[in-house]
């Protein structure tokens, strides 16, 4: 993508997070430019969510800094949101016993100023601000397709809609950058596709998006740029094609083939069994036993990796 001419929305430089002796994230640099969708992938435990938490101020990075539109962010979550970075959570964290509308209104918190006094005195300014907040919240619910459920308790929404509500709530703070932590976890293909469209729509509104995801098809469809995090370090960064064809990435996900491995024999065995199974299937005489044996061997080889 050729957005590099504009100044980045997010600049993370040398972000390192250590928990005691464990280095969860090590010297990660990442830029996100306006209008860009950037993916962050990596095997389980690679430090993706920790990196997110460093970006949003939930963790104070041991080293390095995070800047939003050129200003370095203080490591306080509410100030980060105030500045213009909003996020969702990997495990849904809605305000379960508030209504859908109230959830989004809470998201408006940083963009409204009415304090205790104006709430108690209920002047015209308070009513106007409250009405404006409600209108904006309904707009966002409209946008995510939840408008007809505004009065439901958020805990009663189905799973997919709870994810959408999290996004709507995050968007309520009018962010310049939206961080999505596994937005399609646990979704079926239709819901995943809907989420994909939603993310594109968010991008079209002018919000840059940084997304963690395990669903490779989703990531490679969606993202202009993908960064791969392995054991806390950034391995590669580039377009989908670059990342997909990078051998180190394949190795990180699938492991490296091991020359002269003790598994070679078994692999040969599997091949033989598979050949037998195909032959059996064509003959229509596959017995349960062979099937079972074959499955067993396959499982063992996978363990061996």
């Amino acid at each position: 993508m050729t957005t590099t001419t504009t100044s980045p929305v997010l600049t993370a430089t040398g972000v390192t997070m250590r928990f005691g002796g464990l280095t969860a994230v090590q010297a990660v640099d990442l830029d996100v430019h306006p209008g860009e969708i950037v993916g962050l992938i990596g095997p389980n435990g690679a430090g993706k969510t920790t990196f997110f938490n460093c970006l949003t101020g939930l963790y104070v990075p041991t080293e390095g800094s995070v800047a939003y539109r050129g200003t370095v962010l203080p490591p306080k979550p509410h100030l980060v949101t105030q500045a213009g970075i909003a996020r969702t959570f990997q495990n849904i964290r809605l305000f379960a016993n508030m209504t859908v509308l109230e959830n989004v209104l809470v998201g408006r918190h940083t963009r409204t100023k009415e304090g205790l006094w104006s709430a108690l005195l209920r002047g015209p300014g308070f009513k106007r601000a409250e009405a404006a907040s409600k209108a904006r919240a309904m707009e966002l619910l409209e946008f995510t397709g939840l408008a007809d459920k505004a009065d439901h308790l958020s805990r009663n929404l189905p799973y997919g809609e709870q994810r959408k509500l999290e996004i709507a709530r995050a968007l309520a703070s009018d962010p310049g950058l939206l961080l999505l932590d596994e937005p399609t976890a646990g979704m079926n293909p239709q819901e995943t596709r809907a989420t994909e469209e939603l993310v594109f729509a968010i991008r079209d509104l002018g919000t840059a998006v940084l997304v963690i995801e395990h669903d490779m098809r989703f990531i490679f469809n969606l993202c202009d740029r993908v960064a791969v995090l392995v054991q806390g370090q950034k391995l590669v960064e580039g377009t989908s094609e670059v990342v997909q064809s990078d051998e180190r990435v394949i190795a990180a996900y699938l492991g490296t083939p091991f020359e002269g491995a003790p598994g070679a024999e078994e692999a040969a065995e599997v091949e033989a069994a598979e050949a037998g199974a195909t032959a059996g299937a064509t003959g229509g005489t596959t017995t349960g036993a062979t099937d079972e044996a074959q499955r067993g061997t396959t499982a063992r080889t996978e363990d061996g990796q």
Binding site: L58, P77, R93, F95, A96, E102, V106, G107, A170
Partner: peptide, 15 residues
């Protein structure tokens, strides 16, 4: 109420 429900999420919403 948001703080009561989930303080982490509430601070992440800018509270």
């Amino acid at each position: 109420v948001a703080i009561r429900e989930d303080e982490t999420a509430a601070t992440a919403m800018g509270i």
